[in-house]
Simulated assay, not measured.
Amino acid sequence: MPSPAVDDYLKTIYHHTEWQDERITPSQLAAVLGLAPSSVTEMVQKLAAQGLVTHRPYGPIALSPEGEQRAAAIVRRHRLVETWLVREFDYTWDEVHDEAEVLEHVLSDRLLERIDERLGHPRFDPHGDAIPDAAGHVHREPFVLLADAGVGHEGRVLRVSDRDAELLRELDRLGLTVGRTVRVDGDGMLLDGVEVVLPTGAADAVWLTA
């Protein structure tokens, strides 16, 4: 049966390996969700019993095929809602996450598909995260985290993490948004040939084309 708590766990596990390969550990999952490790351990055991995740004690957690499909479905809901709010209601990219957290659990499948149709079946949300299609499939270009990009690397901004709303506002003021082409230049970057000093945390929150 649908459960917002289960969906939030699956979504968090799904997010963790979208932009890097290391599987999430129970302690990392507890930190992201803001829950006690004992509570997370209990829920992970329940998810494993339901066939939604695979997990050994003290080891990392992975989604099963069924869990992956369910996680992709809730991620699709969240990201379509974010895109809808930005395009249709003039929300900014730092305002949509909390709204989508609520709406993703209450929209009917019919309304969600109407939203998808109205938006022209977008492939990416306002932060550059891929929107899974109805079958759960996604397409991503080869990418590199800004912190790992060497001096002189030139690429297009593929994705900006939505975890820090203030950082999103600062990057927006700088014009460092999804789709912009930049060149890494020491501790900063060149944006349209102009040197830009990056705010704290940006190097670990921005992904470029590889």
Results as ranks from 00 to 15, higher is better:
residue 195 E to Y: 11
residue 105 H to E: 09
residue 127 H to P: 00
residue 162 D to S: 14
residue 114 R to E: 15
residue 50 Q to T: 09
residue 114 R to A: 14
residue 33 L to T: 02
residue 96 V to Q: 03
residue 163 R to D: 07
residue 29 L to K: 08
residue 198 L to Y: 06
residue 122 P to I: 04
residue 45 Q to E: 15
residue 56 R to V: 13
residue 174 L to I: 10
residue 185 D to F: 04
residue 20 Q to P: 02
residue 71 A to F: 08
residue 15 H to C: 08
residue 74 I to R: 04
residue 100 A to S: 15
residue 51 G to P: 09
residue 168 L to V: 07
residue 19 W to H: 13
residue 22 E to S: 10
residue 162 D to C: 08
residue 145 L to M: 13
residue 190 L to T: 03
residue 31 A to D: 14
residue 37 P to I: 06
residue 198 L to H: 03
residue 68 E to M: 09
residue 20 Q to W: 07
residue 162 D to T: 11
residue 187 D to C: 06
residue 121 H to A: 13
residue 65 P to Q: 12
residue 17 T to R: 04
residue 49 A to I: 10
residue 52 L to P: 11
residue 186 G to Y: 00
residue 171 L to D: 04
residue 55 H to V: 12
residue 35 L to H: 12
residue 18 E to A: 15
residue 10 L to F: 10
residue 40 V to S: 08
residue 156 R to L: 01
residue 59 G to F: 09
residue 140 R to G: 05
residue 70 R to F: 02
residue 67 G to L: 01
residue 61 I to T: 02
residue 84 W to S: 11
residue 91 Y to N: 06
residue 88 E to A: 10
residue 156 R to H: 03
residue 165 A to V: 10
residue 138 V to C: 09
residue 161 S to V: 02
residue 80 L to D: 05
residue 125 D to V: 03
residue 94 D to R: 07
residue 64 S to V: 06
residue 102 V to W: 10
residue 60 P to W: 05
residue 97 H to N: 11
residue 162 D to M: 04
residue 191 L to G: 05
residue 153 H to R: 01
residue 112 L to G: 03
residue 94 D to W: 15
residue 84 W to N: 05
residue 171 L to F: 06
residue 45 Q to K: 11
residue 121 H to L: 09
residue 181 T to H: 04
residue 21 D to K: 10
residue 176 L to T: 06
residue 66 E to Q: 14
residue 203 A to V: 12
residue 65 P to K: 10
residue 121 H to Y: 13
residue 31 A to C: 00
residue 5 A to P: 04
residue 182 V to M: 03
residue 171 L to S: 05
residue 96 V to C: 03
residue 156 R to F: 02
residue 34 G to Y: 07
residue 210 A to E: 12
residue 97 H to E: 14
residue 60 P to T: 04
residue 121 H to S: 13
residue 100 A to N: 07
